[in-house]
Design a protein around this nucleic acid. Structure first.
Length: 250
DNA sequence: TCATTAATCGCAC
DNA sequence: GTGCGATTAATGA
C-alpha cells in the first residue's frame, strides 16, 4: 500500500469532515498561525487530511517524499530501523508538529518511519504547495526555520545523552522528556508507552528499562501501573541527571 | 472466559 | 550491560 493510493482511497471513499485550515482550532500549528498572511489559496485547498488509527504506520522508511505531514491531533513516534530490526526512536511528536521535514527539499526518500501512538488526524501538504507558501511568506519561512533549529538542537543533545549517560540516566531522561512534552494526567504520564518504546528512545533494551523502572519504583521515585508511569517527584529526577550532563530540550 | 500480548525475572554470557 | 527463555500479569475479543 503506497502512501498515494492510501490517501487517494480515503479521499474518494470518505465523506469529508471539516478539517480545513480556516476552521481548524489547533493553535500550535505553524500553518494555522500564518494563515492570514499566506496568500496562495491553493495551499490550503490542496491540503489532504487523513485519519490514522492507533498503531498505523503512515510513513515508511524508504518511501519517496512527496510532502510533509502536520499533526492536527494525536501522538506519533518517529523512528529509524537498525540492523536487527531494532528501532531507534528519533522523537515523539504531538499536535502541531511536523513530520517528515528532514526529507523536505533535497532528499528523495524518507529515512524515517512514523507510527501513530494514538488515533491521530494528520494534515498532508504536497512539497510544491508548501514551497510556494514558504517562498511567498517570510514569516512562515522563519517559523519553519525556528522549528528546524529546535529540532537540530534537540537531536544534538540527544546524541550527547546517548553516548555519555548511563542507562539509568537515559531512562530518567526519557521519562522527563515525555513528562515535559506530554505532561501528566491523574498522576500518570499522559502518553502510554510500552517498555520497549522507552528502550527504543533511550537507546537500550526493554529489559534494562524494566530493571531501571523497578529500582526507581523501589526508591519511591516513580509509580507504575502497567503502561501508565507516574513521576513522583520531577525535580528529584531532574537533579539526578543535572549533575551529569543534561540540558533542556523540547 | 479464553487467547493474545506485555511485563518481569532469572540466569548465562 | 545484553540476550534469551520461562513465568506471570494485563488486556482485549
Amino acid at each position: 500500500m503506497t502512501l498515494n493510493s492510501n490517501i487517494a482511497a480515503k479521499k474518494s471513499r470518505k465523506k469529508v469532515i471539516d478539517f480545513s485550515c480556516v476552521s481548524c482550532s489547533n493553535a500550535k500549528c505553524l500553518i494555522k498561525n500564518n494563515l492570514n498572511t499566506i496568500t496562495s489559496s491553493v495551499f490550503v485547498e490542496n491540503k489532504k487530511t487523513l485519519k490514522c488509527k492507533k498503531g498505523q504506520q503512515f510513513i515508511i522508511e524508504g518511501a519517496p517524499v512527496n510532502g510533509l505531514f502536520f499533526i492536527l491531533k494525536g501522538a506519533v513516534k518517529v523512528f529509524r530501523t537498525g540492523i536487527n530490526g531494532r528501532e531507534q526512536i528519533v522523537r515523539f511528536a504531538k499536535d502541531g508538529e511536523i513530520i517528515g521535514h528532514r526529507g523536505f527539499g533535497t532528499e528523495e526518500y524518507y529515512s524515517i518511519g512514523a507510527i501513530a501512538l494514538q488515533d491521530a488526524v494528520l494534515c498532508y501538504f504536497s512539497k510544491d504547495d508548501l514551497q510556494k507558501g514558504l517562498l511567498e511568506n517570510p514569516k512562515f519561512g522563519y517559523d519553519m526555520m525556528l522549528f528546524y533549529a529546535n529540532e537540530l538542537n534537540r537531536s544534538e543533545s540527544k546524541v550527547k545523552s546517548i553516548s555519555q549517560m548511563t542507562v539509568r540516566e537515559r531512562v530518567i531522561d526519557t521519562l522527563l522528556y515525555i513528562h515535559r512534552k506530554f505532561g501528566e494526567l491523574n498522576d500518570f504520564l499522559n502518553l502510554p508507552l510500552s517498555r520497549k518504546e522507552y528502550a527504543d528512545y533511550a537507546g537500550t533494551r526493554e529489559e534494562q528499562v524494566i530493571r531501571v523502572f523497578s529500582t526507581l519504583k523501589k526508591e519511591g521515585l516513580i509509580t507504575a501501573k502497567g503502561k501508565k508511569i507516574g513521576i513522583v517527584n520531577v525535580n528529584f529526577l531532574k537533579k539526578e541527571i543535572d549533575e551529569h550532563n543534561y540540558f533542556l530540550d523540547l
